[in-house]
């Protein structure tokens, strides 16, 4: 990854390594890393979770977005020390038991991923949106995803994919609510 000005003027050896205890995609991860290393770098370089991408490393494009305690945050602006003990979810943690999350399924079916580089960030922003607003209007989707840039799609297929996923998740919830209760 391409850091910009990080470590400028800092002589190697000055940085202090610290022990980080992180919860990532439901797993405890222990990492020893320089204190100034961003969460984006720790995820990609120390934990090998390269599904999270970067487009600017300045907090401008949304590409590196992940969830921390279900909130959408930019991992390039987050220091791991600040989120110890919190739940981190990356694109690798979206699918369950090999089954794609409805958002992933819809993005794939509708061509909402073209080059696919911004896709993980959009998926995480969309997940955060649907967690708080399970059936968002088109305008709410545009608002909810406005921190993420995409250069391929013109966004429309992304909006449609979020709507399709929301519909399917809503149908699943209704099915679950009306299903007969099974005694434990």
């Amino acid at each position: 990854m391409a850091k910009r000005g990080l470590g400028k003027g800092r002589v190697k050896g000055e940085s202090q390594d610290i022990w980080l205890r992180l919860m990532v995609n439901g797993r405890r991860c222990d990492v020893v890393a320089p204190v100034q290393k961003t969460l984006l770098e720790v995820l990609r370089e120390d934990l090998g979770l390269t599904g999270t991408k970067h487009g600017c490393e300045l907090g401008e494009c949304g590409t590196c977005g992940i969830l921390v305690n279900d909130l959408f945050v930019l991992s390039c602006l987050t220091l791991p020390v600040d989120i110890q003990g919190k739940e981190v979810t990356t694109v690798e943690g979206l699918a369950h038991n090999g089954k794609l999350h409805p958002l992933q399924q819809a993005f794939s079916e509708l061509g909402a991923a073209q080059c696919g580089y911004c896709t993980p960030g959009f998926l995480m922003a969309a997940k955060a949106l649907l967690d708080t607003d399970p059936s968002p209007t088109r305008e709410a989707i545009q608002d909810g995803l406005s921190g993420n840039l995409c250069r391929c799609t013109g966004y429309l297929k992304i909006f449609e994919a979020v709507e399709l996923a929301a519909d399917r998740m809503g149908a699943e919830r209704r099915k679950a609510a009306t299903a007969p209760q099974v005694a434990p």
Binding site: T90, E92, Q105, E109, A113, T119, P120
Partner: peptide, 16 residues
């Protein structure tokens, strides 16, 4: 229909 490279791209497995 979706693309053959869709699943790799929505799971973060496409290797750039």
């Amino acid at each position: 229909r979706g693309r053959v490279d869709g699943p790799a791209k929505v799971t973060g497995q496409a290797q750039f």
